[in-house]
Structures are given as C-alpha cells and as structure tokens.
C-alpha cells in the first residue's frame, strides 16, 4: 500500500507527471474560460502554429545536446526556402523539378551545417557567436541571390503546392512533417548507438573521446541535421505561403529555444529528450492560442508570454530539485548539487 502510494507520488513528481499536470491544468482552465478551445479547428490551428518551430526544434535538439547552439536556423530556413522556390520558378511544377529543388536545398543546408560543424568541432569557436555571425551572412546571401526580390509562385500546383498545403485525414501537411521528424529524432536519440553517443559527447566530450566516441564527427552531424531540418521548415513555409522573401522565418530561433528550454533541455548539452521538446512546443503554441482566446489586451501579449515561460521553467526546476531533495537544504552551501544528473535521457 505504502509502496504503491510512493510510486504514484513519484510518478506525479516525475518530469512527465509534471508535464501532464501542467497540460491538465491548462485544459481545465480553458474548459472553464473558453470551451471553444476544444474545437477541432482550434486544435489544428495550434498544431499548425507550432509545426514550423517544431520541425526546426527537432533538429536543433541535436545541436543543443552536443553542447552547441544554432542561432542561424531562421536564415537557414530562408536560404533553403529561397533556393527551393527559385529552382521551381526557373523550371516547372513537375515532380522531377520538385525533387531536384528539394535535394538542392537540402544539399545547401548540409554545406551550411558542415561549415558550422567545422567551426565548432575543428576550430573550437563558440557556436553562439559563430551562428550569430553566419545568421547575418546567410541572410545577406539570400538577399543577394534573390536581388532583394519577393518571389511569389502564382501558379503553384502539383507537389510544390501539396508540400505545404496538402492534408492527410484533415491534418495539414506541416503538422505531419513535424510529427514524422519528431518521431524519427526520438527514435534516433533513444534507440540507436548514434543517439546515445550524442548524449555522451554533450555530457562530457573528453570522456566520450577517451572511450572512443569521436566528438568531432558527432558535432558535425548534429549541425548538419539542424541545418537540414531548418531548410525543410523553410521549404514548408514557402510552399504554404506560395511566396518566398528573404526575411521569412526571421527570429525563429527565439521560439525554438523557448520550446527546447520549456521541454527541460539543458542548453549546456547532454540532457533533454524529443518528448520534452514536443511538450515544450505544444505548451508555447497553447499559450499563444490561449492569449487570443481569453482576450488578453494584445499590447501585453509578449509580456504575458515571458511571464508564463519563466513560470513554466521555474515549476520545472523546482519539481526536479524537489525530487532530488534539494529544496529544503541549505542551498548556499552546495550549489553544485543543484545540477541534475547528466547523460540520462528522461521520459
């Protein structure tokens, strides 16, 4: 009896228990305040709103896990989407063109990822500033190749149209892409040796090297994965909008990082899971949606958003510390104990 009760409490205190609690709390609040929250149209609008961030976040997770950060995802998306659009515009709407354009954009993304990986893994440059710099450079490049033009696709049809506007069982294509990529990322991170090594490299690169895990290889591939997902997000975006401009996806790195952090991903590396990221993205989407449904004065939207994010992260930190029995201790004496265990993916 006692053991069972303990088990239940443990489950409630665990990270997933806590996430479910937050979601249930939100849903209860919404049920009281605005029952329309539960309409299928609204659910789809939440999912569609987070799909683009989510696609990028599933790749960004790899980079953050190996201890890096990629602030250039917005410009990578813009570059990918622009190359894709330009190629299709220069040719036709046939399936062949579509696949060539798609592969071309992915190829460019791989090059960008290689570059980032090279700077981080081989030259040891801090990824925060490197990607901030490449963000400028890639936006510049996108502007340069489009000659600052706005590229509308007026006769979109075929696969180009379906990529962003297609529907499966009434679910928009970007959402499906997000789910597929999230499942793949979760599988790779959890079930494959490669994924485990990513955690190892992020947790302690030197120790990983000593047991024969090449941190360079894993860093390179993580940046490549991130750039590729960003590029896919860019292509989904142009296909949905049927227009490409160099400033599209600007500032996407902020919401993506928010989703990661709310999903309990440690930005220092080695900690976090795709499930957490999915939850984080969902919560960000629900918050934005709630703010409109409840009718918060729109001028204060960002303010409320910031407060809720701090609150969500604070609850997260508090419960994880409590589960480690740190809350009542004299914290000032032993702050290093506050760090959660490394290496083990949660969930």
């Amino acid at each position: 009896m006692n053991a069972e009760k303990g088990k239940f409490l443990k489950a409630a205190g665990s990270i997933w228990g806590q996430r479910v609690t937050i979601l249930v709390a939100v849903i209860v609040v919404m049920a009281i305040v605005q029952p329309r929250f539960f309409s299928s149209g609204n659910m789809l609008s939440i999912l569609l709103a987070i799909a683009f961030y989510g696609v990028i976040a599933s790749g960004m997770l790899f980079v953050v896990l190996i201890g890096g950060i990629d602030l250039a995802v917005g410009s990578e998306a813009a570059l990918g989407g622009t190359i894709f659009t330009m190629y299709v515009l220069a040719h036709d709407m046939s399936a062949g063109t579509f696949f060539t354009a798609f592969l071309l954009a992915i190829l460019v993304a791989i090059l960008v990822g290689l570059l980032h990986g090279f700077f981080d893994a081989y030259l040891g440059m801090p990824s925060f500033v490197v990607t901030l710099a490449t963000q400028y450079a890639l936006y510049g490049l996108t502007q340069y190749i489009t000659k600052m033009n706005y590229l509308p696709v007026l006769n979109a049809s075929g696969l180009f149209y379906q990529l962003g506007n297609g529907k499966l069982f009434g679910i928009p294509s970007p959402v499906i892409w997000f789910v597929i990529l999230a499942v793949i990322a979760a599988f790779v991170l959890k079930k494959t040796p490669y994924g485990r090594r990513i955690y190892a490299v992020g947790g302690n690169p030197h120790a990983a090297e000593l047991v024969g895990v090449s941190s360079k290889f894993h860093k390179m591939t993580a940046y490549i994965i991130c750039a590729v997902t960003a590029s896919i997000a860019g292509m989904l975006l142009v296909s949905m909008n049927m227009v490409s401009s160099y400033k599209m996806a600007a500032g996407y790195e902020g919401p993506v990082l928010m989703a990661l952090v709310i999903g309990a991903v440690n930005l220092m590396g080695g900690e976090g899971s795709m499930g957490g990221v999915f939850f984080g993205a969902l919560l960000v989407g629900i918050i934005n949606n709630m703010l409109i449904l409840i009718g918060i004065d729109t001028d204060y939207k960002e303010f409320v958003q910031g407060c809720i994010i701090i609150l969500a992260v604070a609850i997260n930190v508090y419960t994880s510390r409590k589960s480690q029995g740190l809350v009542d201790q004299k914290r000032r004496r032993m702050p290093w104990l506050n760090r959660p265990k490394r290496g083990a993916p949660d969930g």
């Binding site: 605005q34 329309r36 929250f37 309409s39 149209g41 609204n42 789809l44 609008s45 569609l48 709103a49 949905m240 934005n288 949606n289 409109i292 449904l293």
Partner: peptide, 10 residues
C-alpha cells in the same frame, strides 16, 4: 494564418 484560424475558432 494562425491568428485568423484561432479567431475563427473563437
């Protein structure tokens, strides 16, 4: 798009 679809639900 996302804001409009939320408003349509509301």
């Amino acid at each position: 798009n996302t804001i409009m679809s939320t408003l349509l639900a509301k």
